[in-house]
Simulated assay, not measured.
Amino acid sequence: MTSWPGPRIFDGHNDTLLRIMNGQITPEDVAQGLPDGHICLPRARAGGFGGGFFAMFVPSPADQALRYEVMEHPPYDLPLPPRIPQPEAWDFVTREFAALEALQAAGAVTLCRTAAEIEAALQGETMAAVAHIEGAEAISESCEELEPLHSRGLRSLGPVWSRPTVFGEGVPFRFPSTGDIGGGLTEAGKRLVAECNRLKIMLDLSHLNEKGVDDIAALSDAPLVATHSNAHAVTPHSRNLTDRQLAQIAETGGMVGINFASAFLRTDGKMLADFSLDLMMRHLDHLVKFLGEDGVGFGSDFDGALIPQEITDCAGLPNLRAALRKHGVDDALMQKLAHENWLRVLRATWGE
């Protein structure tokens, strides 16, 4: 058995599947080791990365490098990309699901459908993987696709990425700004919430605008969760959560995964990696203030964002643990942040 450097970290969000879809890597690369990127099995073992939510995301035809360049120079307000047609998104997401299954066949991950399976995988040799859809473009207004996807292993879904869908509106990459941009959920969006509750698919608030969050808070019978978001009071970015939203999440026993993306951590909103992890500790303190020690975890955005240079990739997580220790985090809270809080929320959401 591998000796892990501290409690294994179960993570709220990564975009590794998109790298496979883009032809940058193969599932076998992830299993055997990579020269670049944020996640592969050897690095996960070195850093104590236990896995997490593997996002199935349909990219917009835009240049991420150009977006990052704009975000180096606040203030900024990037326009929302247009909607993705449902048939196109369905084709892409079903192929991404096949890529996730190929990761399991290659021995890189164990696809988990229950919190008990995650807990078991965290003790094993592969990464635990939960199937997540980021932006529900692949789902039609009738939501008829949810049941077969759930049978295949889907356990988490975000109604939007940072662009509109038939279900609601996302927030643009805007700094400084709140998320109070656009209208609430559509009637189809309200059906989506009801169907996710029925099937016990976790709803992710990350990327959703403020009125959409309010609607889910009013409609959902599950804990409110933002898998990869930070505190707006520390970094006033449209992607971060206001104190009012944190109070809404706390009221349901939900949680927030701290996003490692530089622009959502830095107080100046810049997408630049050269800063101290003390900034992440400020977000941690603020989130714990509102959510308590049981309501915070990590949602790195590995393979989808510019990560602080002190972490770099999942092999760098011991540096995060060291920063947490220096900040006064004890063994009990370290366990909660690493994976216990995620397991608690998922048990409640999935009815275990």
Rank of each mutant, 00 (worst) to 15 (best):
I258W: 07
G253Q: 04
T235H: 08
R244D: 13
D243A: 11
M255C: 06
Q245N: 10
L241G: 09
A217L: 12
A222E: 04
T242L: 12
S238A: 14
A218R: 12
R244S: 11
A217Q: 01
G212I: 06
V225A: 05
G257H: 01
S238C: 09
P236T: 10
G212T: 03
A233Q: 07
H207I: 13
A261I: 13
S206P: 06
S262H: 15
L241I: 14
S206A: 11
A261F: 15
N230R: 07
N240T: 00
A231V: 06
I216V: 11
A222M: 15
M255W: 00
K211C: 14
L219W: 14
A233D: 06
P236N: 12
G212Q: 05
A233P: 11
D204S: 04
S220Y: 00
S262M: 15
V213Y: 11
H237Q: 13
A226R: 06
R239Q: 07
H237W: 14
D243L: 08
S262W: 15
A250H: 05
L224E: 03
D204H: 03
Q248E: 05
S206T: 15
V234P: 05
L224R: 02
A222P: 01
V234Y: 02
P223L: 02
D243Q: 05
L241H: 10
I216C: 00
N230W: 08
A226I: 05
S206C: 06
I258N: 10
D204R: 09
G254E: 02
I258Y: 04
D215A: 06
S229H: 13
D221A: 14
L241R: 09
A247R: 11
V234W: 07
E210V: 15
S229I: 13
A222R: 01
D215M: 10
E210S: 14
S229K: 08
L246N: 06
D243I: 09
D243G: 08
A231R: 04
A250D: 02
H207L: 15
A218K: 10
Q248C: 07
D214F: 09
E251C: 01
L224D: 00
T242G: 07
A247F: 02
S206Q: 15
V234M: 08
L246I: 04
S206G: 12
H228N: 01
K211L: 14
I249W: 07
N259W: 12
D214S: 11
D214P: 06
P223S: 02
L241K: 12
A231K: 03
A231D: 05
A218D: 03
A233I: 10
I258H: 02
F260V: 10
S262F: 15
V234S: 05
H237K: 08
E210N: 12
Q245S: 08
A231G: 10
N230I: 06
K211N: 13
H207P: 13
G257S: 01
G257K: 04
E251F: 04
H232N: 05
N259P: 11
V256K: 00
N230M: 08
N240E: 01
E251G: 06
G254V: 10
G253F: 04
I216A: 01
L241Q: 08
L208D: 07
G212K: 05
G253P: 03
L224T: 00
N230L: 04
G253I: 02
G253W: 02
A222W: 01
V225Q: 00
H207K: 13
A250L: 05
L241P: 09
A261V: 10
